[in-house]
Amino acid sequence: MSESHSNLLQQYSSERESAQNTAELEALRVKYLGKKGEITEQLKGLGKLPPDERKAVGAEINRIKNEISESLEKAMREMALKEQETKLQAERPDHSLPGLFNRPGTLHPVDQVAREIADIFLAMGFFMAEGPEIEDEYYNFEALNVPSHHPAREMQDTFFLESGQVLRTQTSPVQIRTMETLQPPLKMIGLGKVFRRDSDITHSPMFHQMEGLVVGENISMSDLKGTLIMFVENMFGKRAYRFRPSYFPFTEPSAEMDIQCIFCEGKGCKVCKSTGWMEVLGCGMVNPRVFEAVKYDTEKYTGFAFGMGIERMAMLRYGINDIRLLFNSDIRFLRQF
């Protein structure tokens, strides 16, 4: 390459490197490649050269032209990106300002826990049934094998209406109503409000229960255990459990299920009264007298039932120490869940 051409390239290179923005790069393009640019001028001057040199010099100038052109294009692209970036960066607001936030509402803790429990059973193939909260004594007691003047009625102090009806003391009447309309095999849960004449920091005259019932051929107590263990593991995680014999008029055999205390992991604490165990639900094999009340064949069908208090679960889960907080509608409480 001739010395003048190599000087030209060198001059271009240093000018391009010192270019600060796209406008300066554009000026360079005009200076070298424009109509009156240095390269253009040189191409114009080719005609003045002797014919034998013309071809070689022409090729060299064209090569230089291409080189500059490509280099400028590339520089132009990069510079444009850089300039855009600078411009965008300048738009940066105070990121630490709070978002324009609309605080979402909250589901009541009892509702949340009830849903969680229901979801486990629904996933296990149970369906959800409902029944009235004001019940006939028949559905709340007699059909469930609790005759009048039976001491078992004391287990549930009942509200009576002037009409003689009762506020249901348990969700178990839902079982009766379901069995009156459906034939086995069935797996149902019932959820709702129940009422008992009792009021202190762990008892509310109104609370919620979840009830379950499974009826079919060959349903056994081992099925009861397996089902409830599956529930407990999904609700509280894998932990020790035990079944204790108990008494409910509508089941025989009857049991209460305890799990290892979720607060002290079985070491013994205030919540579990130092026993290491927490009672979570009552259950049992459906008493044949209940099947008789709904005209199911007691020889063909067997079944199990269970029930649990939702408030108790919610209180355990959220560490709520007074059941009345749940029904006081205090926003400072509700907002926490």
Binding site: G125, Q183, K187, E217, S220, M230
Partner: peptide, 8 residues
């Protein structure tokens, strides 16, 4: 065990 039935 688990109940070997499919509910209605």
């Amino acid at each position: 065990t688990l109940p070997a039935i499919t509910s209605v």
